[in-house]
């Protein structure tokens, strides 16, 4: 793009530069909050802003005290543990049910395909506050409020649409004649699914699972309504911290979460490449 075609006059060129400048500033806007939060988490003062010492790169203005504070606070440790437990089981439930259903949905013979797809994807669209209120009313009847199974079920329902979307996308490149070939060679459908279909769509399944995990890991509204004190999660702990008592421990947790998202992004990218290779795109 650095070489302009001959018919470009000065205005064309200015336009291109202006465009790039505006795109650059939007990217800056997107990255700014993430860039700001990381240095702030090393603040040695209990404030949410850059101190003079930090700006002059005085080493004593930086410290790891807020990271220590996470380790010393049993509530944070409990929250981290709970987030992983709930996220893990919600992911298993959502991925298993979602993958099987996606295979059915991708079949050309699936009846009412459009309506069912729209229904299964709707947890992604309905406002969380409505879901939370409804689940609070309904789960109470089954004594699921304030329990791990209640939260796992709730989060699995939220994760399902992501699994469906990613797995269906992978299946759209899947050659159905392989499936039929498997069947005609005498294998039962389950075996064909396990030995033929699953290896080919595995990247899609795993990335769907990652999406489901992140959905649960990041979710706070349902937790606010459905969790008891034993089930508080990282986002719940952050939410109450932000509402009641702001201190930089939250920034330290936030920084750690940024690194979690970087790892996630890298694995998704690797999965995408692998999937493209498998599908021969």
């Amino acid at each position: 793009m650095s070489r302009f075609p001959d018919y470009f006059n000065i205005w064309h060129k200015t336009g291109v530069y202006a465009l790039r400048l505006s795109a650059g500033s939007v990217l800056f806007f997107l990255m700014l909050p993430i860039l700001v939060i990381i240095p702030l988490s090393f603040n040695s003062q209990p404030y949410f802003t850059f101190t003079e010492g930090m700006l002059s790169f005085d080493a004593s203005a930086y410290s790891l005290r807020w990271y220590n504070a996470i380790l010393e606070n049993p509530n944070w440790i409990l929250a981290i543990r709970n987030s992983f437990i709930i996220g893990f089981f919600a992911t298993i439930v959502a991925t298993t049910l979602g993958t099987v259903a996606a295979v059915g949905l991708a079949s050309p013979d699936m009846p009412f395909k459009r309506v069912i797809t729209a229904l299964l994807l709707s947890p992604m669209i309905v406002p969380l506050i409505i879901i939370a209120a409804g689940m609070f009313f309904f789960y109470t009847r089954f004594n699921l409020v304030g329990t791990f199974p209640g939260l796992i079920i709730a989060h699995a329902a939220l994760g399902v649409p992501f699994v469906i979307v990613t797995v269906t996308a992978t299946l759209s490149g899947f050659d159905r004649s392989l499936y039929n070939a498997g069947l005609s060679l005498g294998a039962n459908p389950l075996r064909v699914f396990k030995d033929v279909v699953l290896p080919l769509i595995r990247p899609g399944v795993i990335s769907g699972g990652l999406f489901a995990f992140v959905t649960s890991f990041d979710e706070v509204v349902l937790v606010l309504f459905l969790a008891g004190p034993d089930q508080r999660t990282i986002p719940r702990q952050m939410f109450s911290g932000l509402r009641e008592q702001i201190n930089p421990t939250i920034l330290a947790v936030a920084t750690l979460l940024v690194f979690v998202s970087i790892c996630l992004l890298v694995s998704l990218e690797l999965l995408r490449r692998r999937s493209e290779r498998l599908r021969g795109v």
Binding site: L97, L105, I116, L120, P123, A154, V160
Partner: peptide, 27 residues
Amino acid sequence: RRLTAFMLVTPLLLFIGFAFFAPIATM
């Protein structure tokens, strides 16, 4: 074949029905 496809989707439909649609209906 239609039944097979539908059977694959059924477990998820039941799950979402309990975990998601029943709560919305209760609301």
